[in-house]
Nucleic acid binder design. Structure first.
Length: 271
DNA sequence: AGAGGTACCTGGCAGC
DNA sequence: TGCTGCCAGGTACCTC
């Protein structure tokens, strides 16, 4: 479920409830996420005052006067503002309770998400330190991607999904951006011209931007912090549409596997 | 250094 | 209805 637009939608949804608040408590029901929630986190964060909720790649950073909570939604996680009266479900692993009485509840069936804590600058955290530029930053340009791809034989789709190259581009949007840029997903990254990289970067930005505007993509189980689905799914041009006609040329869209990830493309438009 | 594969975990679905 | 096998939006970490 959560790619960058879904994480950003989540951030925007819960930021008002989580910014500039006193944290009453952190209630951990199941600490065994991708990495265990540190035992001391509940003690550390209790009574802290939050300043902002930021995003870096697909990580959410809850900054406080004591340190920063680093949260990730994994493949199936969600953070919602919930009614404190509502009984927690099987996969509701932690709650953040703030002084307004609001409860922010983390649900994650697959438990690939995480909740960590750092008292250092989170940018220096091992999980964040090697991340490439944000897709919307001005350092992510066609020229940058072109240079980062010289003599690389890796498929451009894998290059786009490599977080050291550019942060936060996941499978759905890599497929969509490559279709929009008319670049074949399996093409060697090192064999793409600077002009085509310019176009690709532009398409990565625009598809992410449009999806954020629509509140993300709901495939099976992404709902925003208010419980409403994202509305970008009908706008996906190739993802999940194998066998359907290409929206541009009518050729039959194909599915293949690149780097163990489902890949969708038009065999005629994309070269 | 780069490429490729594995692991983490549950739920939904197709096929039998 | 019930079982089995496969697939899934992420990404760190291992080996070759």
């Amino acid at each position: 479920m959560p790619e960058l637009p879904e994480v950003e939608t989540t951030r925007r949804g819960i930021a008002p409830a989580l910014s500039g608040r006193l944290i009453d408590s952190l209630l951990v029901r199941n600490s065994s996420l991708r990495w265990p929630i540190p035992d001391e986190l509940a003690t550390q964060i209790r009574g802290a005052t939050t300043s902002s909720l930021d995003r870096r790649a697909k990580y959410l950073l809850l900054r406080t006067n004591r340190g920063t909570a680093i949260m990730h939604l994994g493949m199936s996680g969600s953070l919602r503002i919930c009614d404190p009266e509502v009984e927690p479900g099987r996969h509701d692993h932690y709650d953040i309770l703030v002084d307004t009485g609001a409860v922010i509840r983390f649900n994650d069936p697959r438990r690939f998400g995480c909740l960590l804590w750092t008292t250092e600058d989170p940018a220096h955290h091992p999980l964040l330190i090697d991340l490439g530029p944000e897709p919307f930053s001005k350092t992510f340009t066609g020229t940058y991607l072109y240079h980062a791809s010289r003599s690389r034989s890796v498929a451009i789709k894998q290059q786009l999904m490599n977080s050291r190259i550019v942060a936060g581009v996941g499978n759905i949007y890599a497929n969509e951006a490559l279709f929009r840029a008319r670049i074949h997903p399996a093409r060697a990254a090192g064999r793409i011209s600077r002009q085509r990289m310019d176009l690709l970067v532009e398409q990565v930005r625009s598809v992410l931007e449009e999806s954020i505007r629509a509140g993300g993509t709901t495939l099976r189980d992404f709902y925003g912090t208010d419980g409403r689905p994202g509305y970008f799914r009908p706008k996906l041009l190739v993802y999940g549409r194998e066998g359907a006609p290409c929206p541009a040329c009518g050729a039959e869209l194909r599915q293949s596997t690149i780097g163990q990830r489902s890949t969708f493309y038009c065999p005629r438009c994309q070269r």
